[in-house]
Design a binder for these strands. Structure first.
Lengths: 174, 174
DNA sequence: CTTGCTACCGAATTTCATTCTGCAAATATG
DNA sequence: CATATTTGCAGAATGAAATTCGGTAGCAAG
Protein backbone atom coordinates (compact mmCIF):
# COMPACT_ATOMS: atom_id res chain seq x y z
CA UNK A 1 0.00 0.00 0.00
CA UNK A 2 1.71 3.15 -1.09
CA UNK A 3 -0.79 5.82 -0.17
CA UNK A 4 0.19 9.08 1.31
CA UNK A 5 1.50 8.65 4.82
CA UNK A 6 -0.92 6.07 6.15
CA UNK A 7 -3.41 8.93 6.41
CA UNK A 8 -6.15 6.83 7.86
CA UNK A 9 -9.26 8.94 7.61
CA UNK A 10 -9.58 8.84 3.82
CA UNK A 11 -13.27 9.62 4.13
CA UNK A 12 -14.50 11.75 6.98
CA UNK A 13 -18.23 12.13 6.49
CA UNK A 14 -19.36 8.65 5.42
CA UNK A 15 -18.06 7.18 8.66
CA UNK A 16 -21.36 5.38 9.22
CA UNK A 17 -24.41 6.68 11.01
CA UNK A 18 -24.78 6.99 14.73
CA UNK A 19 -26.63 4.17 16.42
CA UNK A 20 -28.51 4.20 19.70
CA UNK A 21 -25.34 3.38 21.63
CA UNK A 22 -23.57 6.38 20.17
CA UNK A 23 -26.47 8.58 21.15
CA UNK A 24 -26.30 7.36 24.71
CA UNK A 25 -22.59 8.03 24.87
CA UNK A 26 -23.10 11.52 23.46
CA UNK A 27 -25.86 12.10 25.95
CA UNK A 28 -23.51 11.45 28.82
CA UNK A 29 -20.56 13.35 27.38
CA UNK A 30 -22.60 16.44 26.59
CA UNK A 31 -23.50 16.67 30.24
CA UNK A 32 -20.06 15.84 31.59
CA UNK A 33 -17.12 15.10 29.37
CA UNK A 34 -14.89 14.32 32.35
CA UNK A 35 -16.72 11.05 32.94
CA UNK A 36 -14.23 8.20 33.08
CA UNK A 37 -14.47 5.47 30.49
CA UNK A 38 -15.13 3.05 33.31
CA UNK A 39 -18.25 4.90 34.41
CA UNK A 40 -19.14 5.79 30.86
CA UNK A 41 -19.13 2.14 29.91
CA UNK A 42 -21.16 1.24 32.94
CA UNK A 43 -23.77 3.89 32.14
CA UNK A 44 -24.32 2.64 28.61
CA UNK A 45 -23.58 -1.05 29.06
CA UNK A 46 -20.13 -1.36 27.55
CA UNK A 47 -16.63 -2.22 28.73
CA UNK A 48 -14.23 0.67 29.25
CA UNK A 49 -12.18 -0.11 26.14
CA UNK A 50 -15.30 -0.50 24.02
CA UNK A 51 -16.63 2.83 25.22
CA UNK A 52 -13.26 4.37 24.55
CA UNK A 53 -13.20 2.97 21.06
CA UNK A 54 -16.60 4.39 20.19
CA UNK A 55 -15.85 7.77 21.66
CA UNK A 56 -12.62 7.88 19.72
CA UNK A 57 -14.58 7.23 16.57
CA UNK A 58 -17.11 9.90 17.45
CA UNK A 59 -14.26 12.35 17.77
CA UNK A 60 -12.60 11.29 14.55
CA UNK A 61 -15.81 11.38 12.60
CA UNK A 62 -16.46 14.90 13.81
CA UNK A 63 -19.68 14.06 15.61
CA UNK A 64 -17.87 15.35 18.67
CA UNK A 65 -16.41 18.62 17.44
CA UNK A 66 -14.37 19.19 20.53
CA UNK A 67 -14.40 19.04 24.30
CA UNK A 68 -14.64 22.44 25.92
CA UNK A 69 -14.82 24.03 29.34
CA UNK A 70 -18.05 26.00 29.59
CA UNK A 71 -17.46 29.28 31.33
CA UNK A 72 -19.85 31.22 33.48
CA UNK A 73 -20.22 34.54 31.65
CA UNK A 74 -20.66 36.37 34.96
CA UNK A 75 -17.33 35.06 36.17
CA UNK A 76 -15.52 36.78 33.34
CA UNK A 77 -17.53 39.95 33.55
CA UNK A 78 -19.77 39.32 30.57
CA UNK A 79 -22.95 40.39 32.29
CA UNK A 80 -24.88 41.58 29.27
CA UNK A 81 -26.26 39.37 26.53
CA UNK A 82 -27.97 40.68 23.44
CA UNK A 83 -29.16 39.58 20.04
CA UNK A 84 -28.49 42.04 17.28
CA UNK A 85 -30.20 41.96 13.93
CA UNK A 86 -28.09 43.52 11.21
CA UNK A 87 -29.16 44.68 7.79
CA UNK A 88 -26.34 44.63 5.30
CA UNK A 89 -25.96 45.66 1.71
CA UNK A 90 -24.80 42.29 0.43
CA UNK A 91 -25.03 38.58 1.13
CA UNK A 92 -22.62 35.81 1.90
CA UNK A 93 -18.99 36.31 2.83
CA UNK A 94 -19.17 40.07 2.67
CA UNK A 95 -16.63 42.50 3.92
CA UNK A 96 -18.92 43.33 6.80
CA UNK A 97 -19.04 39.71 7.88
CA UNK A 98 -15.29 39.36 7.84
CA UNK A 99 -14.99 42.39 10.07
CA UNK A 100 -17.66 41.27 12.50
CA UNK A 101 -16.04 37.88 12.96
CA UNK A 102 -13.10 39.61 14.55
CA UNK A 103 -15.08 41.35 17.25
CA UNK A 104 -14.46 39.39 20.44
CA UNK A 105 -17.86 40.20 21.91
CA UNK A 106 -19.60 38.36 19.09
CA UNK A 107 -20.36 34.73 19.87
CA UNK A 108 -22.55 33.83 16.95
CA UNK A 109 -23.15 35.07 13.43
CA UNK A 110 -25.97 33.69 11.35
CA UNK A 111 -27.56 34.78 8.13
CA UNK A 112 -31.30 34.43 8.44
CA UNK A 113 -34.42 34.46 6.36
CA UNK A 114 -36.87 37.07 7.52
CA UNK A 115 -37.02 40.81 7.68
CA UNK A 116 -33.32 41.10 8.35
CA UNK A 117 -30.03 39.84 6.97
CA UNK A 118 -27.80 38.83 9.81
CA UNK A 119 -28.30 37.83 13.38
CA UNK A 120 -25.62 38.20 16.02
CA UNK A 121 -25.41 36.89 19.54
CA UNK A 122 -23.15 39.18 21.52
CA UNK A 123 -21.96 39.31 25.10
CA UNK A 124 -20.48 42.40 26.67
CA UNK A 125 -19.60 43.72 30.09
CA UNK A 126 -22.07 46.57 30.07
CA UNK A 127 -24.57 48.52 28.08
CA UNK A 128 -21.77 50.94 27.41
CA UNK A 129 -19.67 48.19 25.86
CA UNK A 130 -22.66 47.16 23.76
CA UNK A 131 -22.96 50.73 22.55
CA UNK A 132 -19.30 50.59 21.62
CA UNK A 133 -19.90 47.45 19.59
CA UNK A 134 -22.90 48.97 17.84
CA UNK A 135 -20.82 52.02 17.02
CA UNK A 136 -18.21 49.77 15.46
CA UNK A 137 -20.93 47.96 13.55
CA UNK A 138 -22.26 51.16 12.04
CA UNK A 139 -18.73 52.09 11.08
CA UNK A 140 -18.37 48.78 9.30
CA UNK A 141 -18.77 49.07 5.53
CA UNK A 142 -21.86 47.24 4.35
CA UNK A 143 -23.88 47.63 7.54
CA UNK A 144 -27.10 49.47 6.91
CA UNK A 145 -29.00 49.18 10.15
CA UNK A 146 -29.23 47.21 13.37
CA UNK A 147 -31.91 46.29 15.84
CA UNK A 148 -31.00 44.96 19.27
CA UNK A 149 -32.77 42.72 21.71
CA UNK A 150 -31.24 42.94 25.15
CA UNK A 151 -31.65 39.82 27.23
CA UNK A 152 -33.18 40.38 30.66
CA UNK A 153 -32.93 36.83 31.95
CA UNK A 154 -31.77 33.56 30.52
CA UNK A 155 -33.96 30.65 31.53
CA UNK A 156 -32.31 27.93 29.52
CA UNK A 157 -29.03 27.64 27.70
CA UNK A 158 -27.61 24.27 26.77
CA UNK A 159 -25.36 22.92 24.06
CA UNK A 160 -26.49 20.80 21.14
CA UNK A 161 -28.27 17.71 22.39
CA UNK A 162 -27.83 14.32 20.75
CA UNK A 163 -31.54 13.60 20.84
CA UNK A 164 -33.13 10.28 21.58
CA UNK A 165 -33.90 7.44 19.25
CA UNK A 166 -37.59 8.08 19.66
CA UNK A 167 -37.13 11.47 18.08
CA UNK A 168 -36.23 10.21 14.64
CA UNK A 169 -38.80 7.58 13.77
CA UNK A 170 -39.33 9.01 10.30
CA UNK A 171 -35.87 8.26 8.98
CA UNK A 172 -35.66 8.08 5.25
CA UNK A 173 -35.12 4.48 4.23
CA UNK A 174 -33.66 5.68 0.94
CA UNK B 1 -10.35 34.41 66.28
CA UNK B 2 -13.22 32.07 66.52
CA UNK B 3 -13.23 29.84 63.51
CA UNK B 4 -16.56 28.67 62.26
CA UNK B 5 -16.25 24.94 61.70
CA UNK B 6 -13.06 24.61 59.69
CA UNK B 7 -15.16 25.75 56.74
CA UNK B 8 -12.33 26.97 54.59
CA UNK B 9 -13.80 28.86 51.68
CA UNK B 10 -16.72 30.27 53.67
CA UNK B 11 -18.14 32.04 50.66
CA UNK B 12 -18.42 30.49 47.25
CA UNK B 13 -19.04 33.39 44.88
CA UNK B 14 -16.53 35.95 46.21
CA UNK B 15 -13.76 33.42 45.69
CA UNK B 16 -11.47 36.22 44.54
CA UNK B 17 -11.35 37.66 41.09
CA UNK B 18 -9.76 36.00 38.13
CA UNK B 19 -6.28 37.16 37.34
CA UNK B 20 -4.43 37.10 34.04
CA UNK B 21 -3.19 33.58 34.69
CA UNK B 22 -6.72 32.31 35.21
CA UNK B 23 -7.76 33.95 31.96
CA UNK B 24 -4.99 32.20 30.12
CA UNK B 25 -5.97 28.86 31.58
CA UNK B 26 -9.58 29.43 30.63
CA UNK B 27 -8.51 30.43 27.17
CA UNK B 28 -6.83 27.10 26.66
CA UNK B 29 -9.56 25.02 28.26
CA UNK B 30 -12.33 26.65 26.28
CA UNK B 31 -10.60 25.56 23.12
CA UNK B 32 -9.66 22.09 24.31
CA UNK B 33 -10.51 20.81 27.75
CA UNK B 34 -8.67 17.54 27.16
CA UNK B 35 -5.33 19.31 27.41
CA UNK B 36 -3.15 17.59 29.96
CA UNK B 37 -2.03 19.54 33.00
CA UNK B 38 1.53 19.10 31.83
CA UNK B 39 0.88 20.88 28.56
CA UNK B 40 -1.53 23.28 30.19
CA UNK B 41 1.14 24.34 32.62
CA UNK B 42 3.66 24.69 29.85
CA UNK B 43 1.31 26.86 27.80
CA UNK B 44 0.74 29.32 30.63
CA UNK B 45 4.05 29.05 32.44
CA UNK B 46 3.16 26.93 35.45
CA UNK B 47 4.02 23.52 36.84
CA UNK B 48 1.48 20.73 36.32
CA UNK B 49 0.36 20.70 39.96
CA UNK B 50 0.05 24.47 40.02
CA UNK B 51 -2.06 24.44 36.89
CA UNK B 52 -4.14 21.68 38.37
CA UNK B 53 -4.65 23.63 41.55
CA UNK B 54 -5.87 26.71 39.72
CA UNK B 55 -8.18 24.76 37.44
CA UNK B 56 -9.63 23.01 40.45
CA UNK B 57 -10.38 26.37 41.97
CA UNK B 58 -11.91 27.61 38.75
CA UNK B 59 -14.23 24.61 38.82
CA UNK B 60 -15.13 25.02 42.47
CA UNK B 61 -15.76 28.71 42.16
CA UNK B 62 -18.10 28.06 39.27
CA UNK B 63 -16.08 30.03 36.73
CA UNK B 64 -15.91 26.74 34.86
CA UNK B 65 -19.51 25.59 34.87
CA UNK B 66 -18.75 22.21 33.41
CA UNK B 67 -16.80 20.39 30.76
CA UNK B 68 -18.86 19.27 27.82
CA UNK B 69 -18.49 17.51 24.49
CA UNK B 70 -19.63 19.86 21.75
CA UNK B 71 -21.61 17.97 19.17
CA UNK B 72 -21.89 18.67 15.48
CA UNK B 73 -25.60 19.34 14.96
CA UNK B 74 -25.45 17.83 11.48
CA UNK B 75 -24.11 14.58 12.89
CA UNK B 76 -27.23 14.10 14.98
CA UNK B 77 -29.60 15.21 12.28
CA UNK B 78 -30.28 18.68 13.60
CA UNK B 79 -29.96 20.41 10.27
CA UNK B 80 -32.28 23.32 10.90
CA UNK B 81 -31.61 26.19 13.28
CA UNK B 82 -34.08 28.95 14.01
CA UNK B 83 -34.68 31.78 16.40
CA UNK B 84 -38.26 32.13 17.51
CA UNK B 85 -39.67 35.25 19.11
CA UNK B 86 -42.60 34.49 21.35
CA UNK B 87 -45.18 36.86 22.73
CA UNK B 88 -46.71 35.64 25.95
CA UNK B 89 -49.44 36.89 28.23
CA UNK B 90 -47.29 37.08 31.36
CA UNK B 91 -43.74 37.54 32.53
CA UNK B 92 -41.24 35.56 34.50
CA UNK B 93 -41.63 31.91 35.41
CA UNK B 94 -44.92 31.51 33.62
CA UNK B 95 -46.67 28.31 32.81
CA UNK B 96 -45.70 28.76 29.21
CA UNK B 97 -42.05 28.95 30.13
CA UNK B 98 -42.18 25.79 32.19
CA UNK B 99 -43.71 23.95 29.27
CA UNK B 100 -41.25 25.26 26.72
CA UNK B 101 -38.29 24.23 28.85
CA UNK B 102 -39.32 20.62 28.32
CA UNK B 103 -39.23 20.74 24.54
CA UNK B 104 -36.03 18.98 23.50
CA UNK B 105 -35.61 21.08 20.37
CA UNK B 106 -35.24 24.25 22.42
CA UNK B 107 -31.64 25.11 23.25
CA UNK B 108 -32.08 28.56 24.69
CA UNK B 109 -34.83 30.58 26.32
CA UNK B 110 -34.35 34.24 27.08
CA UNK B 111 -36.71 36.99 28.08
CA UNK B 112 -35.80 40.10 26.16
CA UNK B 113 -36.47 43.79 26.09
CA UNK B 114 -37.84 44.88 22.75
CA UNK B 115 -40.98 44.33 20.75
CA UNK B 116 -41.32 40.79 21.99
CA UNK B 117 -41.33 38.84 25.23
CA UNK B 118 -39.30 35.71 24.78
CA UNK B 119 -36.61 34.57 22.45
CA UNK B 120 -35.93 30.91 21.71
CA UNK B 121 -33.09 29.24 19.93
CA UNK B 122 -34.32 25.99 18.50
CA UNK B 123 -32.77 23.21 16.46
CA UNK B 124 -34.81 20.66 14.55
CA UNK B 125 -34.32 18.05 11.90
CA UNK B 126 -36.49 19.71 9.31
CA UNK B 127 -38.88 22.51 8.55
CA UNK B 128 -41.59 20.01 9.24
CA UNK B 129 -40.27 19.41 12.73
CA UNK B 130 -40.09 23.15 13.27
CA UNK B 131 -43.71 23.39 12.26
CA UNK B 132 -44.50 20.73 14.81
CA UNK B 133 -42.74 22.73 17.49
CA UNK B 134 -44.58 25.91 16.53
CA UNK B 135 -47.84 24.02 16.69
CA UNK B 136 -46.99 22.88 20.19
CA UNK B 137 -46.09 26.45 21.11
CA UNK B 138 -49.42 27.79 19.95
CA UNK B 139 -51.12 25.06 21.96
CA UNK B 140 -49.21 26.16 25.03
CA UNK B 141 -51.27 28.28 27.40
CA UNK B 142 -49.94 31.81 27.60
CA UNK B 143 -48.44 31.92 24.12
CA UNK B 144 -49.98 34.70 22.07
CA UNK B 145 -47.88 34.83 18.93
CA UNK B 146 -44.56 33.79 17.44
CA UNK B 147 -42.21 35.07 14.78
CA UNK B 148 -39.48 32.83 13.42
CA UNK B 149 -36.14 33.56 11.86
CA UNK B 150 -34.77 30.53 10.05
CA UNK B 151 -31.01 30.40 9.87
CA UNK B 152 -29.60 29.96 6.38
CA UNK B 153 -25.92 29.71 7.30
CA UNK B 154 -23.97 29.93 10.49
CA UNK B 155 -20.70 31.79 10.08
CA UNK B 156 -19.56 31.79 13.68
CA UNK B 157 -20.63 29.89 16.76
CA UNK B 158 -18.38 29.70 19.77
CA UNK B 159 -18.82 29.30 23.50
CA UNK B 160 -18.30 32.02 26.07
CA UNK B 161 -14.80 33.42 25.78
CA UNK B 162 -12.73 34.39 28.81
CA UNK B 163 -11.62 37.64 27.25
CA UNK B 164 -8.19 39.14 27.45
CA UNK B 165 -6.71 41.41 30.04
CA UNK B 166 -6.61 44.23 27.55
CA UNK B 167 -10.36 44.13 27.34
CA UNK B 168 -10.98 45.32 30.87
CA UNK B 169 -8.70 48.28 31.42
CA UNK B 170 -11.49 50.30 32.95
CA UNK B 171 -11.92 48.18 36.03
CA UNK B 172 -13.63 49.90 38.89
CA UNK B 173 -11.11 50.63 41.56
CA UNK B 174 -13.91 50.71 44.11
C1' DC C 1 -17.15 -23.87 4.89
C1' DT C 2 -13.65 -20.44 4.85
C1' DT C 3 -12.22 -15.69 4.81
C1' DG C 4 -12.30 -11.02 6.16
C1' DC C 5 -14.30 -7.63 8.95
C1' DT C 6 -16.45 -5.42 13.01
C1' DA C 7 -17.33 -4.78 17.77
C1' DC C 8 -16.51 -6.38 21.93
C1' DC C 9 -14.12 -8.07 26.38
C1' DG C 10 -10.35 -8.96 29.97
C1' DA C 11 -5.76 -8.30 31.01
C1' DA C 12 -1.46 -5.73 30.62
C1' DT C 13 0.84 -1.44 30.14
C1' DT C 14 1.66 3.34 30.24
C1' DT C 15 0.41 7.83 30.82
C1' DC C 16 -1.40 11.29 33.49
C1' DA C 17 -4.16 13.23 37.31
C1' DT C 18 -3.76 13.91 42.02
C1' DT C 19 -1.52 14.08 46.48
C1' DC C 20 2.17 15.20 49.49
C1' DT C 21 6.12 17.85 51.20
C1' DG C 22 8.63 21.63 51.59
C1' DC C 23 9.83 26.47 50.13
C1' DA C 24 9.54 31.35 49.08
C1' DA C 25 7.09 35.52 48.48
C1' DA C 26 3.34 38.22 49.95
C1' DT C 27 0.49 39.75 53.65
C1' DA C 28 -0.88 40.37 58.06
C1' DT C 29 0.41 40.95 63.05
C1' DG C 30 2.63 42.71 67.08
C1' DC D 1 10.68 46.91 61.76
C1' DA D 2 10.62 42.06 63.08
C1' DT D 3 7.84 38.12 63.09
C1' DA D 4 3.78 35.10 62.33
C1' DT D 5 0.50 33.54 58.86
C1' DT D 6 -1.12 32.71 54.52
C1' DT D 7 -0.83 31.85 49.68
C1' DG D 8 0.95 29.97 45.51
C1' DC D 9 4.15 27.21 43.56
C1' DA D 10 7.71 23.38 42.32
C1' DG D 11 9.48 18.54 42.63
C1' DA D 12 8.82 13.97 43.88
C1' DA D 13 5.69 10.12 45.03
C1' DT D 14 1.41 7.85 44.52
C1' DG D 15 -2.61 6.15 42.50
C1' DA D 16 -6.09 5.96 39.11
C1' DA D 17 -7.25 6.31 34.64
C1' DA D 18 -6.49 6.13 29.62
C1' DT D 19 -4.76 3.42 26.15
C1' DT D 20 -2.88 -0.68 24.08
C1' DC D 21 -2.88 -5.57 23.24
C1' DG D 22 -4.36 -10.11 22.15
C1' DG D 23 -8.27 -13.03 21.59
C1' DT D 24 -13.30 -14.21 20.62
C1' DA D 25 -18.02 -14.02 18.78
C1' DG D 26 -21.17 -12.46 15.19
C1' DC D 27 -21.81 -11.51 10.41
C1' DA D 28 -21.35 -10.82 5.29
C1' DA D 29 -19.18 -12.19 1.18
C1' DG D 30 -16.87 -15.57 -1.62
Amino acid sequence: MDQNTDDVRRKRPPERDLDAMDRKLLGVLVEDATTSYAELGERVGLSPPAAHERVKRLRRSGAIRRVAALIDPEAVGKTLLAFVHVDTTGWGKTQALLAIEEYPEVEEIHSVAGDTCMLLKVRTESTHALEGLLARLYDTPGVKATRSYVVLSTYLERPVQPGTTSEWPAVVKS
